[in-house]
Write a protein that binds this DNA or RNA. Structure first.
Length: 972
RNA sequence: GCAGGGGUCGCCGAGCAUGGUCAAAGGCGUAGGCUUCAGGAGCCUAUCCUGCAGAGGUUCGUGGGUUCAAAUCCCACCCCCUGCACCA
């Protein structure tokens, strides 16, 4: 077993046997409750789950170290259709699916056999999931675990839905769905063989009068009815005359008759015939009463809508092309009894004025694009482009009745409503593309009647949901607008279906609450489920009155206890536990859930809980990519969490995920980066062991407390501040970067400056403290490594519960900071010169500025930080100064130079320099001499400009160019 | 199409609210050096272009504009991601 794995197992079992993450209410402590949407158990946990959940865990661990009582519960989602579908695919022997189960999920043959039972499958993944969720180090209180098919949980859901219904949030209605006629069930994306993402589109049927009968022509653009010239039917396809809803006879395609039967229409076919029979006859527009001919259109696809299409050649490229073809080749009309002259007389009727086009946009665009005929594929492109333009910028012309002068955009909905009222239109749904069910049956649109909805259209409910958002923290803040947009946009949501796992609607016959609708309020259930699990409370005992008492404090507890067989003590405990933990402080998930799950959660809390129990914070993050691509089992880039931990260990996996992104950006999992991270952790381990722990034994705790130690401690304070602020804002990436790399860089710089890299030299207590702080800052991210090193450094308690470092103002040492700033500036200036001159140095000499220059420098700084440094003003002041007077000639040259360099300084540094006043640069450089020698691998000397010229080595007379904080440099 | 979020120096990414401190943090990669029996790791240095003295030039999706000054503000355009429903 690898060392990493040993360490992981060791600490996991120590945490668990010490019950570190099992938390009960503690009135003495402030609480934090964090949650992560329960994962759906039709497959193993993967690195995508781990990314979102790791953010939760890091936050939980951080808050725990800050002294909060932190609850982080977990559960498993079994509700819904996919588990059944998956199980059926195994039962059916779907070889591709089974291959994936074997190779990606790593399911053994023995288990696979039993996957024909969906519950077995779900239990398998749940068990596996729990093992990896523990291994990755999630600090979960497992006593509160459940799956959504637990009868006790279902009692909670029943209670929730009864409440929603009481308050009028549940409504009934009809809804079009993509439907598999064989399964007799809605076919969601997951159940489809092909046609993913396809949804029903609504056509307007304009019922043209055809004697006593009707020709319902389907369109998305009913406004074009004003520009009709003729109808198209496919002369070779089969049509029917059918009695629709017992009152009207419709002429439609055979396929359409089938489809309309599923759309709440009774359709009785009287007669079947060939479309050619219709050609040459005439019909009447219901709007104008005008009479038009029926012409042959072989392009008409009877599988689409009604198979009857009306022609608007002025605005529809296809219609124009088809008409032109007929006019140019009248021969095809033979045998239909159509007068070719009549066809030749047909002229487009323009009804829409659109920018960039003349009277007949369709004719123009066909001309412009050089489209040859109706079979030219670009005809489709032209159609799309023209439709778009007309919809957005088109205005209806005078021949459009009451709609004249209005834009299509603003008038469309009104027009459809008006036509409906007049009874001249109907609606029909159809699929824009073919959809095939997993059972290989082509799907159609069905209108489900008596469907149950959650009425998210309810304006009062929306308003309440907005209030929930307003009082909540959103991480990152930029996502807030998405939540408001989601609340505005949500409308009726079908909350029940007839198949799959889940809780039956308490009042509905055979309806099961669907999966997104049973995941909205359950966070409250975590608070009490510990008691339910531990006391084996039966589902029967969990009556509505029990929940009313626990969540609302309603009713007399003695009476409730008597009726439910739950002791009053237990009832009280549950009530208190709920009140203690609720509301949750953070719920974190991927951004794709904003529009459904997370918004539903907001809605349901708004509906059922008072403001004091409304969610306090929601976090969203991007979608995990793998090597730059979205992760899919089918793409072969699917990474299970188990696989990742086995390969890189828990710490590197966590950090590899979190270093990828924060905010709404999509993190990218790159195997190379994760293994780099793993080896980085290895070197941290060896650094702590070989340098720090070994050094501690040599030195036995010496403390030098030089400026360098102060500098290290000071820097650390900034890192603490940055990491703490970042974590409070759930900026896990910034926090990790600070905790890992920035602190590391500080420590490295310290080590270099002390010339104590590598070997087991004595280490200063300041360094030991710094390393301990470092481990604490890293502990939420890499808990296993940190526990291990923490204990190796002699600490006997868990780092997981050690106090989080606090920013300590007293450790800020601006003089130390400026000293090191000066050294780094000197270093980079020298290197810059070396690079430009390409000199191989024999000797380096630094000259620090004369004392009088400091007076000048500080005066300029003072001026620059309060306002503008004016040269003339400064010169006047300096010439009045007796000490400076002798240097006026030099000062004249110096002042503009200093002004230039000081403008480059940050306001913060200027302020610090002013506070410190003059520093002894020579001494500082003197102290850094060994370091500088090392760095440049040559002799280094330092002189002060004040020194006597004779004792100073300065062959090129550089010393005079020295400026405070910018010593002159001479390279030999 | 609609809604929300984005486009930064080889890559990943900070910065943009509150314009100047920005050739623009940090990480990765690459190159050179040290260390090492060797490999790896570690440590150091460099990494837009130019430059024999700490400097200059050209960059932040594209094109305009505001300003003494724009990665940052305004306008237009192009491109990418997420969602668009009965499905987790």
């Amino acid at each position: 077993m690898s060392q990493t794995k040993q360490v992981e197992e060791k600490w996991l079992s120590l945490w668990e046997s010490a019950h570190v993450f099992e938390v009960d209410p503690d009135p003495a402590k402030q609480k934090i409750m964090v949650t992560f949407p329960f994962p759906y158990m039709n497959g193993p946990l993967h690195v995508g789950h781990a990314f979102s959940a790791s953010r939760v865990d890091v936050y939980a661990r951080f808050k725990r170290m800050q002294g909060y009582n932190v609850l982080w519960p977990w559960a498993w989602h079994w509700t819904g259709q996919p588990l059944l579908g998956a199980s059926q695919r195994v039962a059916r022997g779907d070889s591709e699916y089974i291959r994936v189960l074997r190779e990606v999920d790593g399911v053994s043959e023995e288990h696979l056999q039993r996957f024909v039972d969906p519950k077995y499958m779900a239990q398998y993944y749940t068990d596996e999931g729990k093992i990896v969720a523990r291994r990755i180090g999630f600090s979960v209180d497992w006593r509160r675990e459940f799956t959504t098919v637990y009868p006790t949980f279902q009692k909670f859901i029943e209670w929730q839905y009864e409440k929603l219904k009481e308050q009028g949030y549940v409504t009934r209605g009809t809804h079009p769905v993509v439907w598999c006629p064989k399964d007799k069930s809605p076919t969601g994306d997951h159940d489809r063989q092909s046609g993913e993402g396809v949804t029903a589109e609504q056509y307007t049927l304009i019922k043209y009068r055809f004697g006593e009968k009707f020709l319902p022509a389907a369109t998305f653009r009913p406004e074009t009815v004003f520009g009709i010239t003729n109808l198209w039917v496919n002369p070779d396809a089969m049509y029917v005359e059918a009695l629709v809803n017992g009152c009207e006879v419709w002429v439609i395609s055979v396929e359409a008759a089938e489809k309309l039967r599923e759309q709440e229409k009774s359709v009785v076919v009287n007669r079947v015939f060939k479309g050619g029979e219709l050609v040459g006859k005439t019909f009447e527009s219901p709007i104008s009463g005008e009479v038009f001919p029926i012409l042959p259109g072989w392009f008409v696809d009877t599988k689409v809508a009604t198979g009857i299409v009306y022609s608007v050649p002025a605005h529809a490229p296809f219609d124009w092309l088809a008409l032109k073809d007929l006019q140019q080749d009248p021969g095809v009309l033979e045998g239909f009894g159509v007068d070719p002259d009549m066809v030749l007389r047909i002229r487009p009727v323009s009804i829409i004025k659109v920018d960039g086009f003349g009277v007949y946009p369709a004719c123009e665009i066909v001309e412009q694009m050089g489209i040859k005929g109706q079979h030219d594929p670009r005809a489709d492109v032209a159609t799309k482009e023209l439709y778009k333009k007309e919809f957005h910028s088109g205005k209806l012309m005078d021949n459009c009745g009451v709609y004249a002068g209005r834009s299509i955009r603003e008038v469309k909905d009104q027009l459809i409503a008006d036509f409906n009222k007049l009874g001249i239109t109907d609606i029909m749904y159809d699929l824009p593309e073919q959809v095939v069910c997993r059972c290989m049956t082509p799907c159609m649109v069905k209108i489900l009647s008596d469907q149950w909805f959650l009425n998210y259209s309810n304006t009062a409910w929306k308003e309440k949901a907005r209030q929930v958002i307003a009082q909540m923290k959103i991480y990152p803040e930029t996502a807030r607008s998405s939540f408001y947009a989601a609340v505005d946009w949500l409308k009726e949501w079908a909350c029940a279906r007839t198949t799959g796992f889940g809780t039956p609607l308490p009042w509905g016959n055979g309806w099961i609450i669907e999966t997104l609708s049973d995941s909205t309020l359950y966070m409250a259930f975590y608070t009490i489920n510990r008691h339910i699990n531990q006391n084996n409370i039966s589902p029967e005992a969990l009556t509505a009155k029990v929940f009313d008492y626990i969540f609302y404090g309603k009713g007399d507890k003695a009476k409730v206890s008597g009726e439910s067989d739950i002791s009053t003590k237990l009832l009280e405990d549950m009530r208190e536990e709920f009140l203690y933990w609720y509301p949750f402080d953070l719920r974190n998930s991927a951004k794709e859930l904003i529009n459904n799950h997370l918004s539903f959660c907001i809605f349901h809390h708004a509906a059922l809980f008072p403001p004091e129990h409304w969610p306090k914070g929601i976090g969203v993050n991007g979608m995990l990519m793998v090597e730059g691509q979205s992760m899919h089992k089918s793409k072969g880039n699917f990474i299970t969490l188990k696989g990742a931990i086995d390969k890189y260990g828990a710490d590197a996996t966590r950090c590899g995920l979190l270093i990828g992104a924060e905010g709404m950006d999509d993190p990218d999992w790159r195997a190379d980066n994760v293994s780099d991270l793993k080896s980085k952790f290895d070197s941290i381990k060896s650094f702590v062991n070989n340098t720090i722990i070994a050094g501690m034994t040599v030195s036995g705790g010496q403390s030098e407390s030089t400026v360098l130690e102060h500098w290290l401690q000071c820097k650390l304070q900034y890192r603490i501040e940055e990491a703490t602020l970042s974590l409070d804002g759930l900026k896990t990436r910034t926090a990790l970067q600070t905790a890992l790399f920035e602190v590391w860089n500080d420590i490295r710089w310290y080590m270099q400056r002390k010339n104590c890299t590598n070997t087991a030299l004595p280490v200063d207590t300041a360094l030991v403290d710094a390393v301990k702080t470092w481990l604490k800052l890293l502990a939420p991210f890499a808990p296993y490594m940190c526990e291990e090193l923490w204990s190796q450094m002699g600490e006997t308690r868990f780092i997981s519960t050690a106090p989080w470092p606090k920013f300590d103002e007293s450790k800020i040492d601006i003089a130390a900071e400026e000293q090191e700033n000066m050294i780094t500036d000197l270093l980079s200036d020298t290197q810059n010169i070396l690079k430009a001159t390409k000199i191989a140095p024999k000797q380096l000499v630094f000259y620090t500025a004369a004392a009088w220059k400091w007076q000048v420098y500080l005066k300029i700084l003072e001026k620059a930080s309060t306002g503008e440094a004016k040269i003339s003003e400064l010169m006047r002041e300096f010439s009045n100064n007796q000490e400076l007077k002798p240097h006026m000639k030099d000062i004249a040259a110096l002042v503009p130079k200093i002004i230039k360099t000081t403008t480059k300084l940050s306001a913060n540094r200027k302020a610090n320099m002013l506070k410190i006043q003059k520093v002894n640069e020579k001494e500082i450089i003197q102290d850094a001499l060994n370091f500088l020698k090392d760095r440049f691998n040559t002799k280094v000397n330092v002189y002060s400009e004040d020194n006597n010229t004779e004792t100073r080595y300065d062959p090129k007379n550089r010393a005079q160019t020295a400026i405070p904080y910018q010593p002159a440099i001479y390279i030999e």
